[in-house]
């Protein structure tokens, strides 16, 4: 793992990013919060968080031009929760288009389950270096009302009334629906694996 890699957490006014910064810190790294395009482009690793509502989050990204910057990044990028959903083609939440990185359309849970899904659920069908040393069926913390239906970019799956994609990968882009920063030791290992990825594709 590169010791002094530059880690940037994209700060566009959405949600609880302090927790991600602290989680990176607990692994022995410093992460910088930034909305500056140059700083984001120059980072070794980029984390794209997001808690809140998809439509208004996309508006914030468009108003700052970050909607153009993010899809063109070439270093490893990790979208977390709403961050991952915004990297898809579209979302039913706020009926918005997304960044079009992952080939998936985000839908609302509508199958008799309680919404939002809140709590610890299992990830299975793990297919990525992001899940090095993670066992099938380990538990992660999830909070969401919208989900990514199973798709070709899937690298992890979860069941909540329906099987859906809880992690995605395409080129240098990764996305996780769960919160690694809140998923105890399992989440710490997944964040560590992300920081261990090769610096540029």
């Amino acid at each position: 793992m590169k010791e002094n890699q530059k880690i940037v957490i994209i700060d566009y006014g959405a949600g609880n990013i302090q927790s991600i910064k602290f989680a990176v810190q607990r692994l022995g790294f410093e992460a910088k919060l930034s909305s500056n395009a140059e700083e984001i482009r120059n980072a070794d690793k980029v984390i794209f968080p997001g808690v809140g509502e998809a439509g208004s989050a996309m508006k914030m990204l468009r108003s700052t031009g970050l909607d153009k910057v993010i899809p063109e990044l070439t270093q490893p990028v990790l979208g977390i929760c709403l961050g991952m959903q915004l990297m898809c083609n579209s979302s039913e939440e706020g009926d918005t288009t997304g960044l079009g990185i992952f080939n998936a359309d985000v839908k609302k849970f509508n199958n008799g389950v309680k919404v939002p899904q809140i709590g610890w659920n299992q990830i299975t069908n793990l297919e990525s270096p992001l899940f090095n040393t993670i066992e099938e069926g380990e538990y992660v913390y999830l909070v969401h009302s919208y989900y990514v239906p199973e798709c070709t970019d899937e690298i992890a799956r979860t069941e909540y009334g329906v099987n859906y994609s809880t992690a995605l990968h395409r080129n240098n882009f990764y996305g996780v629906q769960f919160h690694p920063e809140k998923s105890s030791k399992t989440g710490e290992q997944i964040l560590k694996n992300f920081l261990n990825l090769e610096l540029r594709s």
Binding site: Q18, S19, F22, A23, Q25, R26, Y141, V143, H179, E181, K182, S183, S184, K185, G187, E188
Partner: peptide, 11 residues
């Protein structure tokens, strides 16, 4: 809250 967030890896 800040002190707790710094240490805690669960919600």
């Amino acid at each position: 809250v800040l002190d707790v967030a710094e240490q805690l890896n669960i919600p």
